[in-house]
Amino acid sequence: MTNGTTHLTRLRTRMLATAYCNADLWTQRTAFLTDQAVAALAHRDPAAAEDLAAQQLAPEFLHDTQILGAAVEAGIDTSTWPERREKIQAYAREAAGLDPHFDPATEAHRLWASLRSHYPQIAAALADNLSGLPESWREDLFTPARPTLKNIPGPETAPYDPTDWEDCEACGEAQDQCRFHRGFFAGQEYQSDLVKTLLTDGVAIEHVQERHAELERLHAQTTTAPDRDEPAAAL
């Protein structure tokens, strides 16, 4: 305890803050109803409520015997619980190997609807910015002018350990490929398809060569242009 605040007050503060601030409906309801149960206990037995709050704020690892013992005492049939837990754990282990189901059009629609709802001014500015892009925006944005390792954008912010491909904690939390590994594999597939296209399609090769030459010219003009802020040299 700090500043005379009881464990019960600290616990109720956390639960009610969770119920108020969390965006998940079930988390909100669980936190609020748990707070109401603790409050009811505090009215009947303040000492028991304070002890329960102290245990909650300093949690220890729960053993199966504790959980199953409490279930048996409550008269709950736990015969199917081991099988259910094994299925859940097996799904979590196999989830990292599942192919991601990702629809860019659906995700873009969701992001735009959320942005327009919560940040309409930013959505309007973004729409103005996108409407002003040239017809070659796809090549300009997603084709590097100089294909080197330094200027190729990464797939996403790296998770805890980006080198751990087999047991990524971020993938386990998402029960799917995390955004980093999903973006990495999507980039590999894109590069593979691009190479195959360039090897078999002469028109695509010519188009890429033209765009590369154009970007090189623009880059050269940018690097050789004089600084307007500098005064002109005296003749």
Rank of each mutant, 00 (worst) to 15 (best):
76 I>F: 08
197 T>W: 05
9 T>V: 13
20 Y>E: 13
37 A>F: 09
42 A>H: 02
215 L>T: 14
196 K>E: 14
145 A>D: 08
73 E>T: 07
79 S>N: 06
161 D>E: 07
51 D>F: 12
150 K>T: 09
22 N>V: 06
165 W>E: 12
66 Q>T: 11
42 A>Q: 03
176 D>P: 00
74 A>V: 06
104 P>L: 00
59 P>R: 03
202 G>L: 01
36 Q>P: 06
192 S>T: 15
184 F>E: 03
16 L>I: 08
209 Q>A: 15
24 D>Y: 05
76 I>D: 02
202 G>W: 01
221 Q>H: 09
59 P>C: 02
131 S>A: 15
123 A>Q: 01
224 T>C: 02
74 A>F: 08
84 R>F: 13
198 L>G: 02
134 P>M: 02
70 A>S: 13
11 L>T: 02
178 C>W: 00
87 K>P: 07
39 A>K: 08
13 T>F: 09
50 E>Y: 01
189 E>K: 10
57 L>C: 02
73 E>H: 12
69 G>W: 00
189 E>T: 11
19 A>F: 01
84 R>M: 13
53 A>T: 00
190 Y>T: 10
153 P>A: 01
177 Q>Y: 07
196 K>M: 14
6 T>D: 00
30 T>S: 09
57 L>V: 05
225 A>E: 08
232 A>H: 14
72 V>W: 11
83 E>T: 07
226 P>A: 02
217 R>I: 00
120 P>M: 02
180 F>M: 01
123 A>N: 02
103 D>W: 04
13 T>K: 07
194 L>Y: 05
228 R>F: 14
167 D>V: 04
46 P>Q: 01
228 R>G: 09
25 L>W: 13
51 D>T: 15
214 E>D: 10
68 L>K: 11
74 A>M: 08
39 A>I: 05
93 R>N: 07
36 Q>D: 09
194 L>E: 05
203 V>Y: 14
47 A>G: 08
178 C>N: 02
4 G>P: 03
107 E>Q: 08
52 L>E: 01
